[in-house]
Design a binder for these strands. Structure first.
Lengths: 353, 353
DNA sequence: CTGTTAGCGCATTCAA
DNA sequence: TTGAATGCGCTAACAG
């Protein structure tokens, strides 16, 4: 059985200071309330001496609000989400809120557990990148009595507040850039298409190819079995390596590869280098996300940026607005991709412009 | 002012189910308690219908315990801490606890804020990698009535539970390995020595050199000014680049470099490559931590592992033991470094063995 | 098997 | 300027 040391309560303080709990409460949290300077001083001294800290469970129960924001991401081990959590944390602290970061380990069930936990903790708001896709989940989510903003992966029909990144435009932009640089045979390399974002990114990719009159080669993907066999730690890096194995089995190397994210791209670049294939000399690669490492690696990664700073800013502004105005109607904000040109995409032989 | 939607309470459920709050409570949280099958069913149905969720503030206030564990790390954007948080999270979930991950952004003040927040939330236990060093902080920490385990950076004299990684042994091990591979002029490259871990790692490094009768060259470090000027995102990668600039200004390239962590090592390898200096051909580099990426990059990074899996396991076992036995006396657990030989350290010309 | 009720710690009326 | 009393939502002791 779990036990715990007895904590000092407001009553202990009141007794020691020879006053009432009401006065102690006033000294501590109602700066304006008139309390004689002397009593105020004694109370503070006793608080210090007893190392008293108000029990938030009493406070919140009494009707206060828990100044805590919950953030749920698929995996903090993914640098994109780590950076985003970090950005969000800063916004929270600025406004006097405490953030609770939850990582769902790419598990829909764990994500739901986190959601329940946050709700039971009466958090003031929730920021969520969900990997759940079932309607039943969104029905439950919709019934949760708490301000919330979805970002990164809001499903197509989602009706609440959400930050919607233009994945399709991103895929289009990536291919456009590659074509502009003279590439023709452009491959898509990705984990399973189990998230809307990946489907959309691929759609943008295919659209751009079609528009340029180019054929859409079959994508390189990770099978469910391969995914299950991936050691937990390695994550997408390993997927990049697996994709390279498949790539090298092709009759002919493509001109360029559109990778589903930076980690996959980096994994591919490394695996290719080991096999003697140089990026971008032998093949160009474009990533997605623009994680910190992309800028400092060699070759510096050309990528499509999904700005964590902007996402965090938009999402938190929206969330705090909703916390202030619980009845505001759902807002959808759009976030545009940005092309970040660096060194992993080279000019191809037959460049057009 | 902050407002919130009225949440459904146990009373709402009881009324709707035409029963008492006690029965509802029993159905929900006391599986053994005898309640007629029919009533049980009705209650469950109403709970579902009203989307009721017990308010944890009521539960805890009543005397229950908050099955939540707080984890504070210096920065989730550092892959080592991200991985560790992730490992810890798994242990928590296995035991029916919910983890709250807090990132202190390398700020001692923010770390204290997080600590206060966790305490006010009556968490069952806290896992802490502190960057605070002042005595006053540890006095406050000591007075906190909550089971806690320090890991990664417990200060020398700390008396509570702690997991102590042998940084000094790690530094020694790194140099030993380099010497074994025939390297003689071995440089230490690091951020500021503002943490005990870095001082200790350097001490082990210097000890090993002295023992081998080799001189200890002046270390390459980041100045406080350079650190302040580092853009927030880049982190230690940038530090690696700065260290390379300093390295290349030396009259002579060393045989090998001992980097303070993997990120710095990776940053250095990349910056060196851009300047035409190949690792390990021209200079060997050994990292520290063994983050996921170390295994899959090119060259695969030789490094000294501080196992996140082991750290998490030891720390959580200790923490849960302390939660079960609040009066147990402080335990100190030691964690040994492991050398992970990969490809960033080469055999030097005049190898001994 | 089911219901009534006390009380956890706190902020806030209301009364003095 | 201060204090006594109430009730937030919940569980458990007690009563039936």
């Amino acid at each position: 059985m779990i036990s715990r040391q007895k904590r000092t309560t407001i009553l202990d303080v009141a007794r020691e200071a020879k006053t009432s709990t009401a006065t102690v409460s006033r000294v501590l949290s109602n700066a304006d309330y008139p309390v004689s300077a002397e009593l105020r001083r004694t109370v503070r001294k006793v608080v210090e001496k007893l190392n008293y800290r108000p029990n938030i469970f009493g406070q919140v129960l009494k009707g206060g609000v828990n100044r805590v924001i919950g953030i749920i991401v698929p995996a903090v081990t993914n640098p994109f989400y780590a950076q985003l959590s970090s950005d969000v944390e800063r916004h929270c602290v600025e406004r006097g809120y405490a953030p609770i970061i939850c990582s769902s380990h790419n598990s829909g069930a764990l994500e739901q557990d986190h959601l329940e936990m946050l709700l039971r903790h009466q958090v003031a708001g929730i920021l969520l990148s969900t990997i759940n896709t079932r309607d039943s989940f969104f029905r439950k989510l919709g019934a949760m009595p708490v301000p919330r903003v979805l970002f990164d992966q809001p499903p197509a029909g989602y009706r609440g507040h959400n930050i919607r990144f233009d994945f399709q435009g991103g895929g289009f932009m990536a291919v456009e850039h590659l074509i502009r640089r003279g590439h023709r045979r452009i491959l898509f390399a990705s984990q399973r298409f189990d998230r809307a974002s990946r489907k959309l990114y691929h759609k943008g990719y295919a659209d751009a190819l079609r528009r340029a009159g180019l054929e859409t080669p079959e994508s390189l993907t990770i099978t469910e079995a391969e995914e299950a066999a991936t050691p937990h730690g390695g994550g997408d890096f390993i997927h990049g390596r697996i994709l390279v194995e498949k790539l090298l089995r092709l009759k002919q190397l493509p001109d360029a590869v559109v990778a589903s994210n930076d980690i996959v791209a980096i994994g591919m670049i490394n695996a290719l280098r080991e096999r003697g294939v140089q990026v971008p000399r032998d093949v160009s690669i474009i990533g997605f996300d623009d994680i910190d490492f992309a800028a400092v690696m060699t070759p510096a990664l050309t990528t499509v940026r999904q700005s964590t700073a902007r996402t965090a800013e938009m999402a938190m502004n929206l969330l705090f607005e909703n916390i202030d105005k619980p009845d505001m109607r759902p807002v959808r904000l759009d976030l545009e991709p940005e092309l970040v040109e660096r060194d992993s995409v080279a000019e191809a032989g037959g460049a057009i412009s």
